[in-house]
Design a protein around this nucleic acid. Structure first.
Lengths: 229, 229
DNA sequence: CCGCCGCGTAAAGAACACGTCAAGGCCCCA
DNA sequence: TGGGGCCTTGACGTGTTCTTTACGCGGCGG
């Protein structure tokens, strides 16, 4: 791989300039954009390996830009946000950002996160081999897309599988409702949290020993769901 | 790393002198400035690792200097302020200062805070990835959104988690009440400081060994809260 | 010395989120 | 054309969480 391509999106010229200089000095190829619309265009044209995105853009809301990118690309997105609007930060992560850095930031910190994001993206491509996850009441084969309970194969509908797969791939971690909805149903359904209740209930009925007292498909009220082995 | 670079900003010559001597004696490289304008210039030229800033400058308001620095730099800022102007102190923290020391101060205290600020900045560079913070009574996993006390998982409500997360991400540094409220509840709640008392009490009850005598979730009366590891 | 302000704690009602059941509609395939 | 699976939607009971009120304590200033 020659230079990693970074798209920097910010409307403040001095920040843009500082980033361009620092990134170029470290061998990155730098693309820039000053608003959301041109950012989306630049991302489509330039095929960046990672995007650094300021949330306070003049034309589009930060989450809209993220959604626009996530519509067709899995490129890692690092969000820059002012220290005061961390509500936006949460929304940005929910919308599909990978990491965030609070403004003002040290250049070293941004570079570290940048490296981490790129590394993560590179790894996740190669790691897709055999993946069978076992619990004491059922097993999930992510490659074969099969679920077994007590040896018997359990039939899941496409949506049920989608929900289970997202949770299992994030095993141990809390998955926010919005993220789950976005991953399974798409960005437009981010508020239909009722779907989750229905499908989690179905999955529990099919997989848990005591559906009323789940041990693996857990609810974190107000936040999301979590798969524990 | 050779010597740590400290920029000291104060308009009183004797304080400047005392600090220069004491800091130099401990191996710091010391830069000085006597007003806000030259402080900003010195910070840009000298790339200090930490700034010690007196609030009572002749030309600029303390918060203006902080804002000026924070426009482009994440360098830790320790504020010096007279005991009487605690309004200024709050504003300074709000503007992005990292910590404060009340005049008159013991040199030991200042040095301790200085070391803490530098250490913190150094740490935050390396942490792009997994983020598990440990204290002697509980651990916080920022990625998985899990809290453990004595091995047992502790359940937190969304708001409890929000408060804890902000404090932990700013570990070691004082977080102003306003900022905490804005970050967790949103800008409209910036004055509802009572919420903080309720939720801090809840967090202490769940996490501290002696909730009445907290060792990690600390109150700085009149200012805000601080998480110490 | 007394009053005020900020903090910590407890408790209760209101608001919200969740799980569950069931019915309606769509699409695909027989 | 009929049927079955699947997704969506609605209604309801229950439990949890947020918000608000009340009160005691301690420090600081008048």
């Amino acid at each position: 791989m020659s230079g990693t391509r970074v798209l920097v999106v910010d409307d403040e010229p001095q920040i843009l300039r500082a980033l361009r200089i620092n990134l170029a000095a470290r061998g990155y190829q730098v693309l820039t954009a000053v608003d959301g619309a041109s950012a989306l265009r630049a991302a489509a044209d330039g095929k960046p390996d990672v995007v650094v995105l300021d949330l306070g853009l003049p034309d589009l809301d930060g989450t809209e830009v993220i959604a626009g990118l996530r519509g067709w690309s899995g490129v890692p997105i690092i969000v820059l946000s002012a220290r005061t609007d961390s509500v936006d930060k949460v929304e940005a992560l929910d919308a599909g950002a990978d990491d965030y850095v609070t403004k003002p930031f040290g250049m070293d910190e941004l570079l570290a996160r940048l490296r981490a994001a790129v590394r993560r993206a590179a790894v996740s491509v190669g790691e897709g081999e055999e993946a069978v996850i076992q619990t004491d009441s059922f097993t999930v084969d992510l490659v074969a897309k099969k679920v077994r309970k007590d040896g018997e194969e359990v039939h899941l509908t496409p949506t049920e599988w989608g929900v289970l797969e997202v949770l299992v791939r994030n095993r141990g971690r809390l998955v926010a409702q919005k993220q789950l909805l976005r991953d399974v149903w798409g960005p437009a359904y981010a508020t239909e949290s009722h779907y989750l209740r229905v499908y989690l209930a179905q999955l529990r009925r099919k997989l848990e020993r005591e559906p009323a007292r789940p041990r693996h498909l857990l609810t974190e009220p107000g936040m999301g769901y979590r798969f524990e082995m």
